[in-house]
Structures are given as structure tokens and as C-alpha cells.
Design a protein around this nucleic acid. Sequence first.
DNA 1: CAGTTCACGATTGTTAACAATCCTTGTCAA
DNA 2: TTGACAAGGATTGTTAACAATCGTGAACTG
Lengths: 207, 207
Amino acid sequence: MEQRLAPNTKLSEARLCETFGVGRMRVRRALLLLSSQGIIELQSNRGAYVACPDKSEANDVFAARMLIEPPLVRQLAQNSDDCNLELLINHIALEDAAREKKERTEIIRLSGEFHTKIAQASGNKFIFRMMRELVTRTSLIVGLFGSSENASCPDDEHSNILKAIQSHNPELAEQLLISHLNHIQSGLDMEARQEAPDDLATILGSD
Amino acid sequence: MEQRLAPNTKLSEARLCETFGVGRMRVRRALLLLSSQGIIELQSNRGAYVACPDKSEANDVFAARMLIEPPLVRQLAQNSDDCNLELLINHIALEDAAREKKERTEIIRLSGEFHTKIAQASGNKFIFRMMRELVTRTSLIVGLFGSSENASCPDDEHSNILKAIQSHNPELAEQLLISHLNHIQSGLDMEARQEAPDDLATILGSD
DNA sequence: CAGTTCACGATTGTTAACAATCCTTGTCAA
DNA sequence: TTGACAAGGATTGTTAACAATCGTGAACTG
């Protein structure tokens, strides 16, 4: 989920209608759904604006992830057969390929997706949903506060985390993930929020 | 959030319209929101049915809560001043009062609310939202699989948990909460799902 | 009698017109 | 010049009619 729309951008119904060639009803339904996920904010009689998380919200997101993800990875390292991990193994391959081809857009997308796939590998539907929301929100935040170069997760930390999981080393896996999250968070500049490029492209995956 | 509607009950738009005296648009919007929270299930061209979690989903819910809630309570016991806990203290008073008056409905409602207030006391918006969804889903499950007598959380376990938090005893608080969740889960009969009373009353709090 | 088909009623999905609200802009007065 | 105010346009919220889909039951056929 890449950052294509600047926060606070207004999403007018009419514009979305013609952009996607779809009726107003569909657009309004999509906007309602997006607002329920906190991706946009609906203001009564005023329209929809893409969410603009502030410093405090950013901290909350990372605190929530810090609460959930480490024990999740630990648990995964404890009791997971290679069958469950196939998803993650394939994912790392995709990430490597994208990094080799220097497809920046794809790298960013996959970088977030890795974390949702960790949740998916747990096989728990609710944990998956929670993590997906948190990762989406993290993408928004990184797009807002992130320094331009390390917008993606640094280097091959993902790969190392997976290796720790595969070798059934819960402590290491957990520790690596904690470091990883800290790296992401410390790569943010909480003061000067930069304007992201206003692109207006394909967000709203399925209406 | 009490159980007033049997799972798999169909919610027809027309019926909801006249029940709540509101236009079809409002109803549809509410249904979409409820479905996004997993409370109901929307089937295309067929209508809305209240969700009917199965055994596996029930396990997932408790697993997710087991992952999140214990460290949350531990954390709360570590760094919380009495100011943050005022919410919980007042809540326990409400529970006691309701239990004294034997207001069964109110007891059940407050019993779930205690757990969302724990999340609220953390001050983290996202954790609060996650916990609220999990508690709602737990209510559905308890209504489905719960033995009739212990539909609410047993006795004064809530009160003991709060005391452990107030006395800054993280280990005890965490342990009490784990036991508490286990009690709730073990009070369920996963085999014969009983039909809940079909009442049709005020769900859909705010349209 | 069992099974299939078709038509009708009921319900949901969609569209378009209408109402209400908000924002802008132009005007006027201090 | 600046501020308040009002009119107009633009945008969102709502309603009601229409279209599409689904379930049911009767009629028909083997």
C-alpha cells in the first residue's frame, strides 16, 4: 500500500465518480468503508479527506505494534512447521527480486506486506485484520514523516527475522523484530512533516 | 453489548426501516458498517445476517485476546497513576451496584465493557479499537456457546485484577487476567450451540 | 409421485432527481 | 482597507422511483 495521495487531500465524490467511472453510490460506500478503517476522515456535509496522523497517533501505532508483533513472532518461531512459513519464504523471494530490479514502488509495497503476512501466518483471522490496519496506518505515517531514502524497511532485516523463525529461535526472532520496529520508528522525523507527492492514482482497490 | 439477536437471524432492510423509523439509506449504511466490523454478514442480493461464529473463530478470538490483553494489563500495572485508573475504579463501582440489584442485563453489558475500558485506560486509540472489536465478538460467542448461568464474567475477578493493577503488581495482574480469560473460555460448551432468544431490540446504537 | 420449469412476489441494488448545507465571491458600509 | 453580510454556485445528504436478482410455489411432464 504505497503512498500516492497527500494527507488532507480532499476526495470529492464527483471527481471520484468520473475517475473510476462509477456511480455515486459506489463511491460513497467505498468512502464509508475507508473511513471505518481510519484511512480517510469523513466530515459531515464537508466531504472526505485522507487521514493526516499526528505525532501522537504515530506513537500509538508503533506502541500497538510493539505490543502485538513481538509475541506473535515469538510464537511463530516456537510452533510453526515449514508449511505455514511457505508464505513468508515466498515473500522474501519477492522482496529480493524487487530490490534487485530496484523497483522502488514495489519494494515499499512488499515491505509493508511482510508484516501482514507474519500475522497471516499465525492463521488467526483477527490478528491478521488488526495487523493489516496497523500496517496501513504505518504506511501513512512513513509517507508523512519518513526521510525520503529509508522509506522502506531497512535492508534485509526481514530476511533475518524469517531465518530466526525458521531455525526456531524465539528469543532471537523477537529481538530482531523489536529492533526492526525501532529502526523504522527512529527513521522518522517527527517535526517537519513533508508534503507527499499529490498523484491521484489507484487507491481504493476494489471500489 | 448484550446478545439480543440470534445468530443467522436475517435483517431485512424494510423491517429495520420501520423498526427504527429511518430511511433505507441510513439502514444500508449501518449494515455496511456492522459488516465491516464482522458483526453481521452481507450476502450479495440476499441480505444481511447476524454473524454466526464457529468453533474455530471462537478459538481465534480468545487467542487474539490472550496475545494482547495480558501484556496490556502488565503494562498498565507498571506505569499508571491513579488518574488513568479512575475510569476502571468507577467501572467496578458500577458493576458492584448492578450485581447488587441483580440487573442481569446490565451486569452482562458492564462485564464486557470492563475489558474495553482496560484498553481505553492504556490511552492508545488503536488498542482501544481492537479490543472493542474483540470484546464485541466475544459477546457474540458467549451468547452462542455460553452456559446460561455464567454468561457474565465470573464473580469479582474484575475487581481483583484492578486491585493488582492499583498495587502495581504486574505479574499478579497479568496472571489474574490470564486466569480470567481461561475461565470465560472454559465456561463455553463448544458442541451444542444453543439458540439465543430472538428478541429484536436496540442494537445499532447510533445508526 | 418426483423432479423440473416457469412465473410471480419479495427483496436488494442502482440511478436520478431533489433538499440541505457549506464555501466562495461580490457588495456595501464603517 | 477591512469587515460583515448576502447571494450564488458547488458539494454533500436524502428520498423515491426503477432495475435486477433471488426465493417460492404452482403447474407441468416424465
